[in-house]
């Protein structure tokens, strides 16, 4: 049964543009049912702001099912808020209490410049994928799908990695602003599968080095795994590092490419 939360104080980061100064605006929500999602609370606030002639708070969101990876938000300093394995869009107000003060900020990472208010630019992620996050298989020439058996444990492990929604919480949570969990999830997905072997070492070298152009370095804090709404394991980073080390030898000489 639903209950009503009363007297919530929101401190929301507002910033006019990438180079704006930025400030916290404070809004009080008198009451809201705990059935509401966190973003529905922001929807209601925005409707009020518009009716009062003020600019709505800009935030990224779309599917509201935790799968598209568009939503973000640092909520009380935690990427995607307090609930484990939950993206902001699936966080509900029942996780909060009457009288709470909630601080809402954008992802904080220099590789994700602020666009406006709570929206950031995550296109550095696309650049990493473009550099090698694929299997080259042009349309039309594929053999029968059952020609290459994939052992179930391998398919399951690849799927565990492939679940990444590309939201950027790992980067936002990392004290170094590193993108190792994101990058390693894609590398692991493709490098585990038999179809991905042909480009395995080229892929890892290209993707890691593109990642390094934009993001900080990993020092094994493990904050990324804790923040990940899909609970992707930092084992993926170990796998990536292992492949990267091998790649630096294998990619050097044709003779080593076995």
């Amino acid at each position: 049964m639903s209950t009503t939360l009363k007297n919530l104080t929101l401190k929301i980061w507002r910033q006019d543009g990438p180079n704006g100064a930025g400030r916290f605006d404070t809004h009080v929500i008198d009451e809201i049912t705990d059935e509401a999602s966190f973003l529905e609370m922001l929807d209601i606030l925005n409707e009020q702001l518009i009716e009062n002639g003020d600019e709505a708070v800009v935030f990224d969101h779309d599917c509201r099912e935790g799968i598209c990876g568009t939503c973000s938000l640092m909520i009380n300093g935690q990427a995607h808020g307090p609930e484990r394995a939950t993206a902001t869009c699936q966080l509900h107000m029942r996780k909060f209490s009457s009288g709470d003060t909630i601080v809402i900020e954008p992802w904080r990472a220099s590789a994700f410049p602020i666009v406006k208010d709570l929206m950031v630019d995550r296109s550095a992620f696309d650049r990493i994928i473009e550099s090698g996050g694929f299997i080259t298989a042009a349309t039309g020439g594929a053999p029968d799908a059952n020609l290459i058996p994939v052992p179930k444990p391998v398919a399951d492990a690849a799927m565990d990695a492939a679940q990444c929604i590309g939201c950027g919480a790992c980067v936002a949570a990392c004290p170094n602003g590193a993108a190792n969990l994101f990058t390693s999830a894609k590398i692991s997905h493709l490098n585990l599968l038999p179809q991905g072997q042909a480009e395995r070492y080229q892929r890892v070298e290209n993707m890691v080095e593109t990642m390094d152009e934009y993001f900080g370095s990993c020092t094994n804090h493990g904050e990324c795994e804790a923040a990940c709404p899909k609970e992707i394991s930092i084992d993926m980073i170990a796998l990536m590092n292992s492949d990267y080390r091998k790649a630096k030898v294998k990619n050097r000489k044709a003779l080593s490419r076995t």
Binding site: A142, P143, V150, P151, K152, A155, D156, A158, M159, Q195
Partner: peptide, 22 residues
């Protein structure tokens, strides 16, 4: 039928049986 072949070639991790078939 071509779609499944194409997506498997691209590395879509479809569910598998223990023998490795789809």
């Amino acid at each position: 039928v071509n779609i499944i072949d194409q997506m498997v070639a691209q590395g879509v991790p479809f569910a598998r049986e223990y023998g490795g078939m789809l």
